[in-house]
Amino acid sequence: MQVDEATVQRIARLARITVTPDEAKALEKELSGILNWVEQLSEVDTSNVEPMTRVVPIALPKRRDEITDGEIPDQVTKNAPQTEDHFFVVPKVVE
């Protein structure tokens, strides 16, 4: 699998990480190298194999649908870069 610069930029956009043209060049090589290396998995016959969903066979625990936590807006917003009245402030999203 050869990753080209356009693909690097497409993935970077999906991942929301700005990548400079120089970085994209280096990443083309690195990502291609890693993807070629994992290609060896195609040697393994997995035609009748279920994908693993959990390593320990336990059922997910259930609990009553009740509020067990909350009323801590000071704590929730304490580490935010910008807040106003317990709201997170972001650049304008809707025109």
């Binding site: 991942a15 890693i34 393994v44 997995t46 194999v49 390593v55």
Partner: peptide, 30 residues
């Protein structure tokens, strides 16, 4: 680098070939 690899293997059209395949191999390892 790892976030980009992860994004790639989960992206449309590649999920089965990479992520699902890897989870099947994981079943065999176990």
């Amino acid at each position: 680098r790892r976030v980009l690899i992860g994004t790639y293997v989960l992206s449309a059209g590649y999920y089965d070939a990479y992520y699902l395949k890897a989870q099947k191999v994981r079943t065999l390892i176990k």
